[in-house]
Amino acid sequence: MKGLLIKDILNLRKTFRTTLFILVFYGLLAYSMVDPSFLSGMVVLLFTMVSITSFSYDDLAKWDTFALSMPVTKKEMVVSKYLLSILLAVMGTLFSVVFGALMVLFKDTSSISEQLLVSYVLFGIAILFVCIMLPLVYKFGVERSRVMMIAIFAIPTFIAFVLNRFGVPMPTEEQFFLLVKLSPLFLVLCIVLSYLISYKIYRNKDM
């Protein structure tokens, strides 16, 4: 499995560079804006998308067929993708934490603890994104999944909007912190469930 991760890292070298360029560009843009907090979310999202790009590269090279002719199991293939995605989400979150710290220093918008909380929430969203995306990619392929993702992002946004419209109250601070405390367990469960679904799909696939 180490080999698989190395393969992804080597392939994504170029993508990383491009992502960093985009970040620097938006970073500068954000610096000039009043409320640059959108960047935090963007960072996490960008990094997580990189893992989807790794699937594209594999498809282009028809890597899977070849990889499975080597002493690599289907299980290892799926696990390595989850590991990669989680690692990328963590990386993105670290960047957003750094950015958050910079914001506190230079823009004096909020406190460090608030920024950390925001980053954590974004990390949670990224993990949920991975949990939903990966099984879709395994089932439908990268291209079709990308389209589906737009819909998937739109639905909760729409629901939140509707709820807001109808005056449904937002969770209280107490409720919110409870959710945060329970979230690690919830995220782990999501990852495990998502992995099991992905593995089942992948196992039954004819290469």
Partner: peptide, 25 residues
């Protein structure tokens, strides 16, 4: 195993391939 088309990603060099294979075989 050798298939009819190359299954290596476009941007890899031989030493990259060695890095990967070292950790597979």
């Amino acid at each position: 195993v050798v298939f009819d088309n190359s299954h290596f990603h476009d941007h890899l060099r031989p030493d990259d391939i060695a890095k990967i294979m070292r950790n597979i075989f």
